[in-house]
């Protein structure tokens, strides 16, 4: 079950907890088996099963908490001005994977999930939009913000390393 690993990885990133991730994947598999007839052949299977997992997450206790935060954050995000970053090439030249993982952890769930779907699971904007139930434009703006936040976090960490503060 190779996609099983991807589902678990995504679930763990969402829940930030191994036990909750296992429960989430277990429920997703059960729902997928039960509702396989609703999967339309010719459509994207990955997007379909990730959508089930994500929808299941948002009905869990952790997911409901995240959703409550989302509504406030979404307003802030929509009103936020996208700050185009200055070249950080030197600081980003040696990316520390552990630091990058911490940067991803720091992201809010809406930004984290879009980053994981597009960059880790390699879903297209359209597929990510179908999975998340949001317009393609929102996928693009969230992805841009997620990467921007990750870059800023990494740049900040690099500066701290260099200056020792």
């Amino acid at each position: 079950m190779p996609l099983f690993d991807s589902l678990f990885n995504f679930a763990h990133w969402l829940t930030q907890d191994r036990t909750e991730a296992e429960d989430l994947v277990q429920e997703t598999c059960a729902k997928a088996l039960k509702g396989f007839s609703s999967f339309q052949l010719g459509t994207n299977f990955r997007a379909w099963i990730f959508r089930i997992l994500r929808n299941t997450f948002y009905t869990s206790r952790t997911g409901l908490k995240a959703a409550a935060l989302v509504s406030i954050e979404e307003q802030e995000l929509d009103n936020a001005v996208i700050i185009r970053d200055t070249p950080e090439s030197v600081l980003l030249s040696q990316i520390d994977i552990a630091e990058l993982q911490r940067a991803i952890e720091q992201l809010s769930v809406p930004l984290r999930e879009v980053l994981l779907l597009c960059d880790v699971e390699e879903l297209s904007y359209r597929e990510a939009a179908d999975t998340l139930g949001i317009p393609v434009g929102t996928v693009m703006s969230r992805l841009s913000r997620a990467r921007q936040s990750a870059r800023q976090y990494l740049a900040g960490e690099s500066r701290t390393r260099v200056t020792g503060r």
Partner: peptide
Amino acid sequence: RFKVKQAVQIAGHRFAP
């Protein structure tokens, strides 16, 4: 940005069942 995208791809594969 290619570099960050590639790094995210590696960093994102973090948890295994």
